[in-house]
Design a protein around this nucleic acid. Sequence first.
DNA 1: CTACCGGGCTGGAGCAGCTTCAGGTCAAGC
DNA 2: GCTTGACCTGAAGCTGCTCCAGCCCGGTAG
Lengths: 121, 121
Amino acid sequence: MKIGEVAARCGLSIDTIRYYERAGLCPAIARGADGQRYFTPENLDWLTLLASLRDTGMPMRERTRFAALYRAGDESVAERKEILLAHGTALEAQAARLARCKALLAHKIARYDSILSGERP
Amino acid sequence: MKIGEVAARCGLSIDTIRYYERAGLCPAIARGADGQRYFTPENLDWLTLLASLRDTGMPMRERTRFAALYRAGDESVAERKEILLAHGTALEAQAARLARCKALLAHKIARYDSILSGERP
DNA sequence: CTACCGGGCTGGAGCAGCTTCAGGTCAAGC
DNA sequence: GCTTGACCTGAAGCTGCTCCAGCCCGGTAG
């Protein structure tokens, strides 16, 4: 798979994928004789996971750590599991934030409505 | 109310509040004779809303637009309502992303578990 | 009355995490 | 054989904070 297809599938931009490779967030990608990157399904899988973690707010530092463990192989599975579990609770926190924002929006919109329908006192 | 208290209550840092004032995201804050900013409850309210919008992913550009409308007064209420409604649907999208990530985590953790408990085939 | 401390102020530098750009290679279709 | 499109690199640029140096001010402890 070439970079364009991977980008389309994993939700990262082409540039971001290249940036992540340079930054060591994904294992070095195999190159063809033409110098182009050729991604394995496992590469795609990993980038998809990274994208999902990024999009749900895992900070770079943490993703970097996670990536280092990933490169270390099966030895690191237990620690990686911890990270994912921790991120799971971070997701809960985020969901709570979303809910609070939703409530706030409802409140504001109600106030706007009362302004719109006949000047409020 | 002084800036420290406002920061503690609204969820933005002191620096961010000052930055937002400079950037025009909140109306100019009143100053005391000592040069310090004194915030009204309405100021606090506004900053709290901004914080909530930021924390749920509303981009700067949109917040800036929203702020400009806010400064324009009641005239702009209808348009502001549109923005908040749109952000509401953005929240839905985010919730969906969170859910997808949660599922992905569950999947990965299951795989890690099967590696941990007796090398997988 | 002086010394100090916490909290505020400013302007400007620094940083993360992309994103864009200039300038170039290669493969394939017409 | 020429254009088109996807890829490559290294470096610069951007956003949205965040931190810092250096200063002022009001209150209180000695």
